[in-house]
């Protein structure tokens, strides 16, 4: 599956547009991670626990989006967008959406 956030894919042509696909997730880290992050806030620097949280959420949302694309019989998803929203403390919602298409290699 080819996934891009552009409208076209260099070297491929879109032969059929199948429609929008989406996936979302709300995840939190265990309380220990929240405590570690607040300790890190004493001295500054990267809050790795929260970076991981975002990475995991993004992977899960993309997985769900790709599962939908597969069901539609797509071999690529273009124009992928991510949005996030704060829903409750220590958690974030990550929403991934894109357009499922069928592509053929050019030439």
């Amino acid at each position: 599956m080819i996934v891009t956030n552009t409208e076209t894919i260099a070297g491929y042509e879109i032969v059929q547009t199948l429609g929008m696909v989406q996936g979302n997730t709300v995840r939190a880290k265990h309380a220990g991670r929240d405590i570690a992050a607040s300790l890190k806030n004493l001295v500054g620097g990267e809050l790795k626990g929260y970076t991981e949280l975002l990475t995991e959420s993004r992977r899960q949302a993309v997985e769900r989006m790709l599962a939908q694309a597969q069901q539609l019989g797509a071999n690529a998803v273009v124009n992928v967008r991510f949005t996030t929203s704060a829903i409750t403390s220590g958690a974030s919602e990550l929403y991934a959406y894109g357009t499922a298409v069928l592509v053929n290699p050019l030439g």
Binding site: T4, A10, N41, L42, G44, T51, V80, F82
Partner: peptide, 15 residues
């Protein structure tokens, strides 16, 4: 083929 790349960063403040 072209592919989507994603990166996340969270940086905290200090006191």
């Amino acid at each position: 083929p072209p592919t989507l790349i994603v990166a996340e960063v969270v940086i905290g403040s200090d006191h």
